[in-house]
Design a protein around this nucleic acid. Structure first.
Length: 272
DNA sequence: CAGGTCTCCTGCTAGC
DNA sequence: TGCTAGCAGGAGACCT
């Protein structure tokens, strides 16, 4: 499940291979990937566009083309793979990019949850990324920013950390890790979090995500290594996917509960 | 506006 | 061993 570090890892890999290349045409095998868009327009407009750069906003990849941004969200299982142009289409490949009549870049997504948007450069405000909150390393991310955003949130902090309109890029794995390192109980209401704790959340968010990027992401529950991106950060997880194992601090058992519909792992002795 | 629930989708897994 | 029901999960839609 790609979160910010995994998306950043994918971005760095893609740009090496794709920068300066041209999208000659695309084949779309599952229209829902391009949600609420006219597929024929998308196919026509993307023809012969140059991939000038690939950037990232939260969990979104942003292909910077000549006249458009191609926004791509991998959601749970999305990945990009390279094939020869005439290689047969394999299961779960939904969008095929002909790159310079030379090779095929393919978007593959077992669950079909991923989304793409082809947006004119001056219409970015109409796209989903316009609603995103601050990047974890943004200077504006301060305890007072979070205090203001959290003041009306009665939801558990675990749920609120996943809110992409406040801090963008945190997903289910890293939310658990950030709260463990911050010694905050995931059930605690966001509005009840003290200023000192907010500072710990900010510091640990950066630390956890930096470390995960350094390790090229976390690979769990991944049945193929075909995406070419197999990270090592799963070895550094303190609580996520570790129910029943001893807490690294107090040795009590890590527990798993559902919070806001999400599997949540924490130590109820260390996290108050 | 805040928050709850449903939906999308398919492979994996627990339980019989 | 083989089958099936239920689960996992990011984010938008829809409802209260």
């Amino acid at each position: 499940m790609p979160e910010l570090p995994e998306v950043e890892t994918v971005r760095r890999a893609l740009i090496k291979k794709l920068k300066g290349k041209h999208i000659k045409e695309i084949t779309v095998l599952h229209n829902n990937i391009f949600e609420k868009q006219d597929i024929e327009n998308v196919k026509e407009n993307i023809k012969n566009q140059t991939i000038n750069d690939i950037s990232r906003r939260g969990k979104w990849l942003e292909f910077v083309l000549d006249d458009y941004y191609l926004l791509s969200h991998l959601r749970m299982e999305g990945k990009y793979i390279y094939r020869n142009l005439d290689d047969p289409i394999e299961k779960h490949e939904h969008v095929l990019f002909n790159i310079d009549n030379n090779f095929s870049l393919r978007y593959k997504d077992v669950r079909k949850f991923g989304k793409m948007y082809l947006i004119k450069k001056d219409e970015l405000e109409k796209s989903p990324i316009s609603k995103l909150g601050l990047e974890p390393w943004d200077k504006e991310l301060t305890p007072s920013y979070l205090k203001e955003k959290y003041q009306k949130k009665s939801l558990p902090i675990k749920t609120v950390l996943l809110d992409q309109e406040i801090i963008t890029g945190i997903g289910n794995i890293y939310a658990d890790e950030i709260l463990f390192l911050s010694r905050i109980n995931p059930h605690k209401k966001a509005k009840d979090i003290k200023e000192k704790e907010l500072q710990r959340i900010i510091d640990n968010t950066k630390q956890v995500l930096d470390k995960a990027i350094e390790e090229k992401g976390t690979t769990i529950r991944s049945y193929t290594s075909e995406e070419g991106v197999t990270g090592n950060n799963q070895n550094n997880l303190y609580v996520h996917m570790r129910q029943g194992e001893p807490c690294s601090v107090c040795k009590n058992k890590i527990i798993k509960e559902k919070i806001g519909g999400r599997g949540t792992y924490y130590c109820k002795y260390c996290q108050k």
